[in-house]
Computed example of a mutant assay.
Amino acid sequence: MSVAQTQVCSAPAYEASVERNVMMPLRDGVRLATDLYFPALNDQKVDQKFPVVLTRTPYDKLGNDTTGKWFAERGYVFAAQDVRGRYESEGTFYAFAHEGPDGYDTVEWLAQQPFCTGKIGTVGASYCAAVQSALASLNPPHLAAMIPIYGPSSYYHCAMRQNGALEMRFFTYAFSMAARSREAAADPLLKQALDEAYEDVWAWTENYPLRKGNSPLRLVPSYEQWAMDISMHASYDDYWKQPGYGPRPYYDQHADVPTLYIGGWYDTYTRATVENFQEMSKRGDGPVHMLMGPWHHGGMGGAGTGDVSFKPDAALSDRNALFLRWFDHWLKGLETGLDKVKPVRYFIMGGGEGLVEASPTIEHGGKWATCDAWPPPNTTPTPFY
């Protein structure tokens, strides 16, 4: 049985009860808005302790509503949190860099609540994977399991910069996030200015580099400062060694907990996913697994990427069931069989019909394989330069 197979362990035995915008205090007094989803019966929260599954996001925690209720129905407290400075949370947003301490404080606060068994698991993709690695780099005592999906190892070396060369998509990311900022939501004129800037983002890209005060980002100074900082720090200095920019500098002190790294062959975090798996597999006792499918960023579990189809085998029928199996095993101690599977499951692309007459889709096909380590045995490195 593979880690990627969808085996439901905890059955849906509860209803879900939600408490919105619980303001969780941080060490510096800033409060983060957190939605808590509780197992319930007859419209009342169940008065017992449960493990907690946590996701932290800059993209509005309300997007996790369906997932939160799904986990609560299966005997977990699910915590969805807006990161500092986004949506309902207090403070000033500065992307990625400072997420480590905030995540650490969140894990430890949750662990001390009367509804928690003291075991916290984390899950999320992209930014929501980066915040997992950031808090794990500081090794909070009550972190018990992780599922980072499409997460960084070192943003300087890949994904934000490529061995130093800036990916301009992150420059444009500053404009996108500013247009959806808490500040913009509170001020229609500011919202209009930032929306127009994002709609014209390619003009700002052509005029790169950004100079302080010369774009509408000046209206949200922390967003402007972040865009300038990732542009100006061209060498691998201390700026890039902050926990929020990837766990590479912290592997030796990183939390030693069961971790499932998930990546895609068409993702910009492929290198990072493999590096994290390899490096963390060398350290500690916490089982480390990797699932690598033929997916693009944000397309985990799909059957195709662009015009290419990997049917019939590539698709995952139920992502939440995959996550549930991991958390059931490590947070609840259920016998899910994970201790009997190989730690790596990866998709080998190819073998399909290819171009089919009158079809816009390339039937590329493929199959799943497993192995104990990466790279797989009998692998031949092939340079393409």
Rank of each mutant, 00 (worst) to 15 (best):
A136L: 15
K49A: 07
D195Y: 03
G299K: 04
D43K: 13
P12Q: 06
A136V: 10
L110N: 05
F327D: 00
T6G: 07
P258K: 14
T57L: 12
D102N: 11
M168L: 15
G246Q: 04
S89R: 04
D372L: 14
I262G: 02
F171C: 05
D105K: 07
K212Q: 15
H254T: 08
G299S: 05
N163Y: 12
Y198S: 05
K119A: 12
G351W: 10
K61V: 01
K311I: 01
A111F: 09
T370S: 14
Y239K: 12
R84H: 01
E15Q: 13
K212W: 09
A184H: 06
Y94P: 01
A315M: 06
D200E: 14
V77L: 03
T172K: 11
N139T: 02
C116K: 02
N214C: 08
M292I: 14
A130N: 03
P243K: 11
W226T: 12
A136I: 07
T122V: 11
V308S: 13
R211T: 13
Y223I: 03
T273G: 12
W295I: 00
E108V: 10
L190M: 13
A16S: 12
G118F: 05
G365E: 09
R325I: 02
D285H: 14
N207S: 15
T172Q: 14
F38E: 03
A255Q: 13
G246R: 05
P152E: 08
Y385D: 12
Y156P: 01
G366S: 07
A145C: 15
D187P: 07
Y346N: 03
V257C: 05
D339A: 08
V22N: 10
F323C: 01
D82K: 04
R161D: 11
E353D: 15
K340G: 00
